[in-house]
Amino acid sequence: MMIDGTSATAGVGSKTSRRGYLTKAGLATGALASLSGCAGVLGSSDDMDTVTMVLTPGTPADTEQRYMPMKNLIEGEVDVSVEMQVPQDYSAVRPALESEQAEIGMDDITLISNPDLMDVYGTTVTGGSAFYFSMMVTQPDSDIEQRTDIEGRTMAFADRLSTSGSIFALYALKQAGLNVGEAPDGDPVDFEGSWSNHDIALEKVGNGEADAATTYGGNGVPHIPEDTELPDRVTEYSTALDTIGTETPQFRPFWWSFPIPKQPVYTRATWDSPLRDEIGEVLLNSDQSQIEQYYPDDYDEEELPFTTLRDTSMEDYEPVITRLNDLGIELGE
Rank of each mutant, 00 (worst) to 15 (best):
M314F: 04
R18P: 04
G208P: 05
D4I: 10
I3K: 09
D116S: 14
D316S: 12
V120T: 08
P231D: 08
E303I: 09
A201P: 01
N207G: 01
T9Q: 15
L241P: 01
S91V: 15
G128R: 01
V125K: 10
M2V: 14
L309G: 01
G217Y: 01
S34L: 15
V86T: 15
N207K: 05
G165Y: 00
E281A: 10
D141Q: 14
I167P: 05
T16D: 08
A156G: 02
E281M: 08
G11T: 02
I244C: 06
G58I: 03
R160H: 09
V78W: 12
E292P: 04
D46G: 05
Q290P: 07
S194I: 02
R160S: 13
M84K: 11
T312K: 05
T163P: 07
E330R: 12
E318D: 07
N325L: 10
I150Y: 00
V93R: 05
G37C: 05
L304R: 01
D232H: 11
E301M: 01
E292N: 06
M118Y: 14
E182G: 00
V125E: 11
G218I: 06
D272K: 12
E236W: 13
T124M: 15
V189P: 02
A212T: 09
P87A: 09
T126Y: 11
E330I: 11
Q288I: 13
E330N: 08
D211W: 03
S162K: 00
H198E: 13
T214Y: 02
L55R: 04
T56K: 07
P261D: 04
Q293Y: 03
G43N: 08
Q263G: 08
L55Q: 13
V234A: 08
I144D: 04
P305T: 09
Y266A: 09
G177P: 10
R18T: 15
E103K: 05
D311K: 13
S289R: 11
L309R: 05
L324C: 10
G13K: 02
T138N: 03
D316Q: 13
E192F: 03
D159G: 05
